[in-house]
Amino acid sequence: MIDLACERLFDSIGNIEDEFLVEAQSISLLETRQDKRKKMIKYGAAAVPIMAITYWYYSKWVKGA
């Protein structure tokens, strides 16, 4: 019975909306890597001022005291 139910579920997945099927086929590995690179640059860029402020705080208040 579980088998039959699984097959029904699997068959129902076969009728999902067209847009999901197109979406899943739309991305390539290159795009995935480019997305990852963009994210790394974004977070990297955000990290620079945080590190600068931390360094400034450390050198002025912690080390200087």
Partner: peptide, 28 residues
């Protein structure tokens, strides 16, 4: 079966894009 498909469609619509794509790639 049509109710199940509708429920699956709603479920998929509620997922993040990467999750949805992973599910569709594997199970469709």
């Amino acid at each position: 079966s049509s109710l199940t498909t509708k429920a699956i469609n709603d479920f998929l619509a509620s997922l993040k894009k990467t999750e949805r794509m992973t599910f569709v790639l594997r199970y469709f």
